[in-house]
Nucleic acid binder design. Structure first.
Lengths: 169, 169
DNA sequence: CTGAAGTTTCAGTATTTTCTGAAAGTTTAA
DNA sequence: TTAAACTTTCAGAAAATACTGAAACTTCAG
């Protein structure tokens, strides 16, 4: 139920959220029919939900021997799911904005007002670009490395200072 | 217009997104009436939108001498806006989940299935906690430090290796 | 006080999004 | 080739969300 409530905030709708929650919590893969019964939603809705989850690369289809039904389970570890949600949201929420900003910055400002507007857009663009680029680099690190880094927390700033000193010597 | 389309993805609705976009692009503060005319939306809707933006701590009210109207402008720099949106979204999207997970983990699992469910929830909980804790620490760093760190990108991993070597000596 | 100039609220309406279920499509065992 | 056992699609219904505008409220200059 909570996954449903949070669903929309996390980027999908109520039933999709519930479906995903159910799959994560349930050890065995579930058939569309089982999902529909467990959550009390129509069979067609399940089909659409699965499609949506697949577009997020969050579910896997499996087949059981002697059974024509399709069984669904979460794709990958919790960690992988997190990076996938993160990546997909970046694609949907950040990339379009970034590309629009870029287009806009190519135009020559026609007057004082447009110049100010561009200045602001430029700042937003640079910020988004730096952050998404960094996020990409972090994702390319191994989960273990990343974990060390996160555990280090703000302490990372001390390590960087240290590096600067060593280099300057 | 784009801010409107993106609005819902970014956590608010179309008109709120448009209003915020307008305020950012416009150098001078705007009155509610001006906003309503510029975006062609009702005066009442502007009032509700401003309230929403205030709940995100994204707009400021100003007064001009000899004028009873309220004038609105974005609160803080682009950087501050970003951290505010980030923080608010954490509050709305992550914190409730984290607290629900915690509650759930206090219950004694009644059977094998519940045990598995708890195992999964535990993993999600730990991941969310590590990430949000880290994000908090990063936000407490000065923007300049953070910028250095981001520019360093994946190179940060080398610096950490270096540190480990130094310590082991 | 008073009332003009403003803001907020909220019931009702319009719009958007989600969900259902029946029909169409697909796959495969025999 | 058939038909049973599934899955997908999609038009229309239901539900959720956003918007309007008029009434209520607030503030303050005179």
């Amino acid at each position: 139920m909570h996954c449903g409530e949070m669903g929309s905030r996390w980027g999908f709708n109520r039933t999709v959220g519930q479906m995903y929650g159910l799959l994560i919590i349930h050890e065995e893969p579930l058939s569309a029919m089982q999902i529909s019964e467990a959550l009390n939603i129509s069979r067609g809705n399940v089909s659409m939900g699965i499609k949506e989850l697949q577009s997020w690369r969050l579910v896997q289809v499996q087949h059981k021997p002697k059974d024509r039904k399709e069984y669904y389970s979460p794709a990958g570890s919790i960690w992988e799911m997190a990076t996938r949600v993160f990546e997909e949201r970046r694609k949907r929420e950040v990339d379009p904005t970034l590309s629009l900003l870029r287009d806009n910055l190519l135009d020559e400002p026609a007057n004082q007002k447009e110049q100010y507007a561009q200045k602001q857009m430029h700042e937003i663009h640079d910020l988004l670009e730096t952050v998404t680029h960094w996020a990409g680099e972090l994702q390319s690190m191994s989960p273990e490395k990343l974990n060390t880094l996160m555990k280090l927390g703000a302490g990372v700033s001390k390590v960087i200072n240290l590096k600067d000193k060593l280099i300057s010597k």
